[in-house]
């Protein structure tokens, strides 16, 4: 396949005795949107949490197998052999519920990754990052006069876009979105979906969704997971019109899930 940015090798992840992800081999294509879909509890969230080493924070979590990040410079990083903090700065994450930092202003939220990590930015650099990133998530025009206010007055959709901005500000290679619109109304959902389309030129996007429609609308590639296993993976056009597995067929037509 073409330019790969993230690759897993026999990735298996478990909580205590329960194996959530079984032996997954998956290659994520650079600057494309890959959707990971499947019924609830199929391990799709666990899978992406292995990509940025968030999974191991859960109690009694275990990960086997390998995950490689291939940077633009073609440098290959085995993410389980380096500092997890470094991995998480290169692979950003956006969560189900919008979670801007309540004690920080909108401005500070965007550069929260720098503030919290103690990375000093020049005022002009910080201004530039904030403006550029907020423009990327089409939030700039809505909040440019209220940058110093706390984000609590923003709508759910705006908060989620702020969270995407916060992840983007670290200039990651990949951002992982864990059902980013499940707490949002249809209009806000559509805005986020349109946003992803614009963002894929700058960053690779992996989105977890249990919503078949969303996977169909936004993604270039789609992976279908069932009971912890990767059943099928390929271009969305192909998977959605002529899947090769019975299970994928059933999931797409709403018989399971």
């Amino acid at each position: 396949m073409s330019d790969i940015v993230l690759r897993t090798e026999n990735l298996t992840a478990s909580y205590d005795e329960h194996i959530a992800v079984k032996n997954v081999n998956l290659s994520i294509v650079r600057n494309k949107i890959t959707a990971i879909m499947g019924p609830s509890g199929c391990g799709k969230t666990t899978l992406i949490r292995c990509f940025n080493r968030m999974h191991e924070l859960s109690p009694k979590a275990r990960v086997e197998g390998k995950v490689f990040l291939i940077e633009n410079s073609n440098e290959v990083i085995d993410i389980y052999s380096v500092d997890p903090m470094l991995v998480r700065r290169k692979i950003g994450m956006v969560f189900q519920k919008p979670n801007p930092f309540p004690t920080m202003s909108i401005y500070e939220n965007v550069i929260a990754g720098y503030i919290l990590n103690g990375i000093r930015l020049k005022k002009s650099d910080a201004d530039e990052i904030v403006e550029e990133t907020l423009k990327k998530v089409s939030l700039w025009d809505e909040v440019k006069d209220q940058l110093r206010k706390k984000g609590a007055f923003l709508s759910g959709g705006q908060q989620q876009r702020l969270c995407i901005a916060r992840a983007l500000a670290m200039k990651p290679d990949v951002i992982l979105l864990d059902e980013p619109t499940s707490a949002l109304d249809p209009v806000a959902t559509m805005k986020i979906e349109e946003l992803l389309e614009q963002l894929k030129n700058t960053v690779t996007i992996v989105i977890v969704t249990h919503n078949v429609g969303q996977a169909g609308r936004v993604s270039d590639y789609v992976a279908f997971m069932y009971l912890g296993e990767l059943v099928e993976y390929g271009p969305t056009d192909v998977i959605f019109t002529r899947p090769s597995h019975e299970k994928t067929e059933e999931f797409l037509s709403g018989k399971i899930g």
Partner: peptide, 12 residues
């Protein structure tokens, strides 16, 4: 043909 089918399948 393929474009039409893909549009219907993906965007309903």
């Amino acid at each position: 043909d393929e474009m039409c089918i893909s549009l219907i399948a993906r965007f309903q």
